[in-house]
Design a protein around this nucleic acid. Sequence first.
DNA 1: ATTCATTGCGTTATGCTATAACGTGTGGCA
DNA 2: TGCCACACGTTATAGCATAACGCAATGAAT
Lengths: 135, 135
Amino acid sequence: MIAPALTKNQSLVFDVLVRAEQPISAYTILDRLRDHGFRAPLQVYRALDKLTEAGLVHRLESLNAFVACAHRNASCCGGHSHGTVAFAICTGCGQADEFHDHEIDHRLTVWAKARNFRPEKTTIEIRGLCARCAA
Amino acid sequence: MIAPALTKNQSLVFDVLVRAEQPISAYTILDRLRDHGFRAPLQVYRALDKLTEAGLVHRLESLNAFVACAHRNASCCGGHSHGTVAFAICTGCGQADEFHDHEIDHRLTVWAKARNFRPEKTTIEIRGLCARCAA
DNA sequence: ATTCATTGCGTTATGCTATAACGTGTGGCA
DNA sequence: TGCCACACGTTATAGCATAACGCAATGAAT
Ligand SMILES: [Zn+2]
Ligand SMILES: [Zn+2]
Ligand SMILES: [Zn+2]
Ligand SMILES: [Zn+2]
């Protein structure tokens, strides 16, 4: 992965996401960075675009929120960048658990190949209650 | 499936979705129903809530759009209502292909069971180019 | 028949999410 | 020097979704 160094804004946004430890919206990020000079949504969205491109951040479609990648140091599947990532999102506490399943990945690939569908980005999100919140 | 008869608004919204044959946004639905007396987004969203509850309509999280269920007459998995539905969405032409894969369903269930995670709703969406648009 | 709860409906206002369009400044490079 | 690519800042606007109010119809239960 040839990742260029992060710019100042990108670092600030990434830092907020890492500290959050759970998905947060772009506007929440904006609010947390007002003291650092952020004034407009675009400053956040532009940084998020680059960070997601670089694989450092994931967007959760069912939440309209963003989360720092939990597999930054995993070597599985080349830092999971070659595989599809899935999330289990607790509607109780907001925690999002990132995981990867080869077999699911494989099945989706097979489906796509059989239909000459060329996948670009795959979203897998399970919403529900985590063990603690379901108890 | 004990489905109550649709109300007038619900029928109108469902009809628009069936005719569309591809995902459309709530506001697009609203525009197409202005001649039938629709004036506000809530009229659409309330109908969509009921229709998705009833399994007649699916929401595509990565598009913020809605689509009529393509499996209304399929008996697989009890009209697929017991299984998870997946979509392949073409970013070229907008077509969304609804399908179901037992194995994926199974893997997700296994993952959840192992962690005492209680799933409520699962989203699987592959975005990419369909055979025609990729050519 | 009156009461009560439920459900759908209509309207206004508001909030949240995301991008368009413009201009500035900087660093690399022919 | 002129050019290009890119990050950045700002204002305005577009697009998606819900809160909160009130009314009307329905269908029990008393
Ligand atoms: Zn990741
Ligand atoms: Zn939880
Ligand atoms: Zn369906
Ligand atoms: Zn296509």
